[in-house]
Design a protein around this nucleic acid. Structure first.
Lengths: 145, 145
DNA sequence: ATAATAAAAGACAAAAATATCTTTTATTTC
DNA sequence: GAAATAAAAGATATTTTTGTCTTTTATTAT
């Protein structure tokens, strides 16, 4: 469903959101450790998210990554689109370019409601939502791969 | 969502089902042309599906691929599992191994109903269903990529 | 039997995704 | 200002996916 880069990115963002709420920044090394992801690869993804304005970064001692208040309201949709593109959310399930309601591929109808619920979920779930659940003990970010 | 191999495989299977209903076999070359897929790659996927008992194949002149009656009732689930595995249907959305209802990842709850509808769709849709829609003009298999 | 046909198998090639390593730049602390 | 720190950037490596090509095997038709 999502690429590894995307799952690593989401995991990292949830953790950064948590720390940001505690007024802390967090470095790539600790992010990789806590989220069980390969550090240099995760660092690359964070770089990309920073360039795209999804996170803030500060170089140097006591530097690291954080999210400002506005960024904590970023919906998952934006994150997934930034890393994986929007093929999952808008593209044809069988990979056809010309597929549409008017000229549907054989899976078009079957896919429609599924795509709708994926989109709804991605648009209505923010980083803050996910981080709140972890904070409240409803879910866990530190699981093994 | 699906790999290219999987979308090519599904496209091919729908066409083979149509032809099988007309009592015809169809060769890899024509399959690739009609479904707009790379021929040798599609041929490889068909080989794999044949080994896995999802399609029948006959070598030599007038040979080709076809589905027997039972195989036409194969649900998409079986096809997707055969080509892509069942990570999409059963795995964790964030890629964690240990994710479960008891110890859920941050996206677990959000994903649950989506995964359920994906599974339901894949289990309840057969190759024959999809081929019937194409046959009835409700959907189209020959679209551009 | 022979020739023609079409899938099977296996080797090979290219591209994309994943992962790592090194050097540079910015920032902070002393 | 110098040293230390941590992200940015860029080069490189590995693996997986996608795609192609060649040879072999089975079948059919003549």
């Amino acid at each position: 469903m999502f690429s590894k880069a995307c799952t690593y990115g989401i995991r990292a963002l949830i953790l950064i959101t948590q720390r940001s709420n505690e007024g802390e920044k967090i470095g790539a090394k600790e992010i990789a450790e806590v989220t069980a992801t390969p550090e240099p690869f995760t660092a690359k993804i964070l770089q990309q998210l920073s360039r795209q304005g999804i996170i803030q970064s500060v170089k140097g001692p006591r530097g690291g990554f954080y999210l400002d208040d506005e960024q904590q309201n970023t919906p998952l949709y934006t994150v997934v689109a930034a890393i994986d593109g929007d093929q999952l959310m808008t593209g044809c399930g069988l990979g056809f370019l010309e597929c549409s309601d008017e000229k549907p591929c054989p899976m078009h109808a079957k896919f429609k409601s599924i795509r709708a619920s994926i989109n709804k979920m991605l648009q209505s779930t923010t980083l803050k939502d996910l981080s709140n659940d972890v904070e409240g003990g409803l879910s866990f970010l530190s699981l093994k791969n």
